[in-house]
């Protein structure tokens, strides 16, 4: 058992990495579950790219400074989210096409800004994360974002569920439809920024979507999915960090691959809607 406990007991950087990943597991996975239920799984991916120019501007202005890169990332993400939502609501273009247009513009801008400063090892941290080097400020930020996310989701749970399940009904009984949609996109951006502190912009979406996709094969209620997804993310975090420690693997991809493994296992063996349920059905209910 010592291989399981010792890395976390002996090394402060492993403890900090674990705490950071658990915070992300709690905050990002419920957002991922709602993305999945709204058929917006790829939105997370697009948004992660949209954040890049903001983080790059922060980096160019202030160097590898957490505050500047966070503010830049959140600002860029929110601008794309608001423009996307506004175009989808007020013009003939659908949300997916509108988002694709804005995130591609944003991504090109980001790549341009990144290349201005030439290749830089620090910048690799932005792209691939620095979970093994989280400082106090980064940890505080991760925990704060997780807290804000959970409180916000608890508050708008009913309008959010209704906006997903029957948006037209929500519009007929209240004015929540627009606000709850934008608030949700705001939470997506916040959690992607949290994720890229630890896992990098490219890996941040993984901890959001893979646990949610795995949870779909285990639970048939929203509450059940939220719980399973958080557990999958937490287990992936521990497993990924241990693999990273013992085998010398980069931690971000190790965590996401652990989540990917759990997803594939769920896909095959999960009790609800999985391949096993499809190809080896149990006998139907008989009186």
């Amino acid at each position: 058992m010592s291989w399981l406990i010792d890395p976390f007991a002996d090394f402060a950087f492993m403890q900090r990495a674990l705490l950071g990943c658990l915070a992300i597991s709690l905050g990002a996975t419920p957002v991922g579950v709602f993305l999945l239920l709204r058929r917006m799984s790829l939105t997370g991916d697009a948004m992660a790219h949209a954040i890049l120019p903001g983080a790059a501007v922060g980096y160019l202005v202030a160097g590898l400074n957490l505050g500047a890169m966070t503010i830049g990332g959140v600002a860029a993400g929110l601008v794309v989210a608001v423009l996307t939502g506004a175009v989808a609501r007020f013009t003939a273009l659908r949300e997916d096409a509108s988002l694709a247009a804005f995130y591609l513009i944003s991504l090109a801008l980001g790549v341009l800004l990144v290349s201005l400063k030439g290749s830089n090892v620090d910048l690799m941290h932005v792209l691939f994360g620095t979970v093994l080097a989280l400082d106090d400020a980064a940890l505080t930020l991760l925990c704060a974002i997780a807290t804000v996310t959970l409180v916000a989701l608890a508050l708008v749970y009913r309008p959010l569920v209704l906006e997903c399940a029957d948006p037209r009904f929500l519009r007929s009984v209240s004015r929540w439809s627009g606000p709850v949609h934008f608030l949700f996109l705001g939470l997506v951006v916040l959690n992607l920024v949290a994720g890229f502190q630890a896992l990098g912009t490219l890996m941040a979406v993984g901890i959001m979507i893979l646990p949610a996709a795995a949870a779909r094969f285990w639970a048939t209620s929203i509450g059940g999915m939220l719980a399973v997804a958080a557990c999958v993310a937490a287990i992936s975090s521990v497993a990924g960090l241990l693999a990273s420690y013992h085998a010398g693997l980069p931690s971000g991809p190790a965590i996401i691959l652990a989540a990917g493994t759990l997803y594939l296992l769920s896909l095959v063996f999960g009790p609800s809607g999985s391949l096993a349920a499809r190809f080896w059905p149990r006998a139907h209910l008989e009186a």
């Binding site: 239920l37 399940a165 029957d166 009904f169 007929s172 048939t220 929203i222 999915m225």
Partner: peptide
């Protein structure tokens, strides 16, 4: 109260 003809209910939603 309004019951639309083409309801936008997502019937795959786990409710």
């Amino acid at each position: 109260a309004y019951l639309p003809q083409l309801s936008e209910v997502d019937r795959s939603f786990p409710l």
